[in-house]
Amino acid sequence: MTYEPRIIGFLCTWCSYTGADLAGTARLQSAWNLRSIRVPCSGRVSPELIMKAFDQGADGVLVLGCHIGECHYDNGNHRTAKRLPVLHSLMEFAGLEPERLRLGWVSASEGERFARIVNEFTDVVRELGPCSWQQNGHRPQAVRAILESEV
């Protein structure tokens, strides 16, 4: 069986989630790899949630919110726009391939854009292959053994 990535999508309920609905009703094909999580605002997606998704085995995380200036809560997406790049550089610094985390803006009327972003992102992550971020050994001893056998 060919490898299919597991992708977690945090979708703002006001725009991106509705945009996803629109993509569905318009019968646009978008990758099934996306597991959507509906959140009240992209500003609610704390960095801890993203780290936890990767810890638990996500191959990619996509955060989609309203375009700047269109936030239902006025400035929620401003916070996202500040936070995500910092988290991005931190996780990249810790060894995550930067392409596995992406922030995008999709409005409720942009079904086509939603499908395109999801498809593009899935293709990129599929190309990268399985993510090695999650440490399944769980107990350090096991992981240590793996690390040492590679040296």
């Binding site: 960095p47 801890e48 780290m51 936890k52 810890d55 910092v86 988290l87 931190l90 996780m91 810790a94 999650q134 440490q135 050994g137 769980h138 107990r139 350090p140 992981v143």
Partner: peptide
């Protein structure tokens, strides 16, 4: 958010999370 154990997942999340909380 993270388990109590001393696994690599937990320790990495603690250190990266703490670093993020100290950003800026």
């Amino acid at each position: 958010w993270i388990g109590m154990g001393n696994g690599l997942n937990e320790k990495r999340t603690f250190h990266l999370g703490r670093a993020y909380h100290l950003a800026g």
